[in-house]
Design a protein around this nucleic acid. Structure first.
Length: 562
RNA sequence: CGGGGAGUGGCGCAGUCUGGUAGCGCACUCGGCUGGGGGCCGAGCGGUCGCAGGUUCAAAUCCUGUCUCCCCGACCA
């Protein structure tokens, strides 16, 4: 299989100084990857073995639900992207060919696959249809980070479903969802499926597959029976003690106190007893006031989705002109449209008075101003989820996602079919993405210990890491050579450390690389006719009689997860 | 895009404040010893100090510009 002495497997004693994330450090140290530029990585042979392990699982599971593999190009004419309105995306790499024709480097393949289907599919008899490929994606990310977790070029398994209607889409979506569950289980990940924002993709529904770990870029709100990306999560806020209600708002002097902390401190009230007013500008509508409890944070995605339109924060001069001094803005007496967060309940709040150095107390949101109620706050740990459980918030890596696209692409690209009655209808689509590199990185993040990687067996670059402690020419080396051949003969993937290196270096590298089973052939064991096997996960040790070592190793591997 | 940090042999770093012609550890090469947790001794190889311009008798060091990389945030199918 692989002899370490011959392999391009450059392990490192120290991680690169600029690496922060655990998977980043370990993948570089273990000789799996090397950096080419910001967000650009090469997979060295060992890393590529892992990547292909993940790919194999993806192919098997896609094939098993009748999703057919194909291959589409990365370099594409810009035309289709103009039609779908995605040509304007900043992350899209744009270029020209030698004739000056506008081209793009695909960031996904909806445009391409939809065009193929639009050209070939005519009849409801051709549907449903599911297609996928494993192909490079190019995205000019504003900030690549954490090794392989967020890169500008990466391989993605992207699948697309084509159905005649929503019910068909729901069936395809469910098939993909079941395949995804098997994929992440087989990859040895701890994972969960969460509701997610449909984002720029549009469409009628979306879920993300999250692998919890500290390096994750996403935050997930979890409670028994509830899981959602914080971007879209909703929950009941923790209650706050409000002061005694008043018959009418009452002015209080708050000279120089412009922040929630300042005012709540000065008045001896919890921050949640304040209402903060955040002016935003909605295109075509002008200023709108968004109200939140003082201890809550605005969730811009929920606000955008709730309003069904984009917005930006108001500039100070716009606020001063329409309302009053920044820091003393409030809803009472304002003529602006007001969106009140749903967590503002009760009848005695403090808010800005729209004049310098003053706030109002005893403000009753239902009595003292008109507003439209909307859930626009970011949920927090400790909130109560719909099922009654308490919300916890955890970072996670997004390892996959599934989208109900609807006709987002079939409409602009003319992907239609004729139904039984001869009526032309738009094809209803779904898209389903998985990043193999993120699966590998997530497996490292979740499994590693202080000594290095601990691969789930299905992802390990080799099943057995055979270490010879002897050097070439010694008797013990012959025993190791023999075992190497026996293991290979048994069809086991084995990395054979036949280097003329120190014991510590070899054993440390074996732990760093994290193959499921390490077998040491050395003087000590051979004296009693055995080789020493140890399981990377859990550390269980076994003495294998020299003659039966290969067979017993095989049996041990079958007992290890996966 | 905003904020912060860093570019000096393959890797990790010192030297920069206070200018004087580049150093340490590891790795690598050769020889020897050693051989169950990155071992020891000896001898070596290897660097236009990111790039460009400027100041100066003299620049890794001072000045100007620029590129790249990393981290935090914004952003993100």
């Amino acid at each position: 299989m692989t002899r370490f002495s011959q392999a391009f497997l450059p392990t490192l004693k120290d991680a690169p100084a600029d690496a922060e994330a655990l998977s980043h450090k370990l993948m570089v140290r273990a000789g799996l990857i090397r950096q080419v530029g910001a967000g650009l990585w090469s997979y060295l042979p060992a890393g590529w073995r892992v990547h292909r392990k993940v790919e194999a699982i993806l192919r098997e599971e896609m094939d098993s639900i009748g999703c057919e593999e194909m291959l589409m190009p990365v370099l594409q004419p810009a035309e289709a992207w103009e039609k779908t309105g995605r040509y304007g995306i900043d992350e899209l790499f744009k270029l020209e060919d030698r004739k000056g024709a506008p081209m793009v480097l695909a960031m996904t393949h909806e445009e391409c696959v939809t065009q193929h289907v639009a050209r070939e599919v005519r009849s409801y008899r051709d549907l449903p249809l599911m297609l996928y490929h494993l192909q490079t994606k190019e995205r000019d990310e504003p900030r690549p980070r954490a090794g392989v977790l967020r890169t500008r070029e990466f391989t993605m398994k992207d699948a697309y479903s084509f159905d005649r209607d929503e019910e068909g889409l729901t069936r395809s979506y469910e098939l993909q969802s079941e395949a995804y569950a098997r994929i992440f289980d087989r990859s040895g990940l701890r994972w969960y499926r969460v509701e997610s924002d449909v984002g720029m993709m549009g469409g009628s529904g979306a879920h993300e597959y999250m692998a919890p770990c500290p390096a994750g870029e996403n935050e997930v709100a979890l409670a028994p029976g509830y899981a959602a990306n914080v971007e879209v999560a909703s929950a009941e806020a923790q209650p706050v003690d409000l002061p005694t209600p008043l018959d009418a708002p009452e002015r209080v002097d708050t000279p120089g106190l412009t922040t929630v902390e300042d005012v709540s401190g000065a008045l001896g009230l919890p921050p949640g007893a304040l209402i903060k007013a955040m002016p935003i500008v909605v295109e075509g509508r002008g200023l709108v006031l968004v109200l939140l409890r003082g201890d809550h944070r605005l969730n811009e995605i929920k606000l955008r989705n709730g309003m069904k339109t984009d917005f930006r924060q108001a500039r100070p001069e716009e606020i001063e002109a329409e309302l009053g001094p920044v820091g003393y803005i409030g809803p009472v007496g304002s003529n602006l449209p007001i969106i009140k967060d749903a967590a503002i309940v009760g009848d005695s709040y403090v808010c800005g008075a729209n004049e310098p150095d003053a706030h109002l107390r005893g403000v009753d949101p239902t009595r003292d101003f008109e507003s439209y109620e909307m859930d626009v706050r970011t949920v927090e740990a400790g909130d109560t989820a719909a099922g009654g459980g308490t919300i916890e918030i955890e970072p996670a890596i997004e390892v996959g996602n599934i989208f109900k696209l609807g006709t987002r692409y079939s409409e602009p690209l003319g992907a239609t079919y004729l139904d039984e009655s001869g009526t032309e209808r738009e094809i209803v689509m779904g898209s389903y993405g998985i990043g193999p590199a993120r699966i590998a990185a997530a497996a490292i993040e979740q499994g590693a210990d202080e000594r290095g990687i601990v691969w789930p067996r299905p992802l390990a670059p080799w099943q057995v890491h055979l270490v010879s402690l002897a050097k070439a020419g010694e008797e013990e080396r012959d025993a190791a050579d023999t075992l190497y051949e026996e293991l290979r003969g048994a069809g086991i993937e084995v990395l054979y450390d036949d280097r003329d290196a120190g014991t510590g270096e070899k054993l440390t590298d074996a732990e760093l690389l994290g193959c499921p089973l390490r077998i040491v052939v050395g003087r000590r064991g051979l004296a009693e006719g055995v080789v020493e096997a140890s399981e990377r996960a859990g550390g269980a040790e076994h003495k294998l009689p020299m003659g039966e070592a290969a067979a017993q190793a095989q049996a041990l591997l079958q007992g290890i997860d996966g």
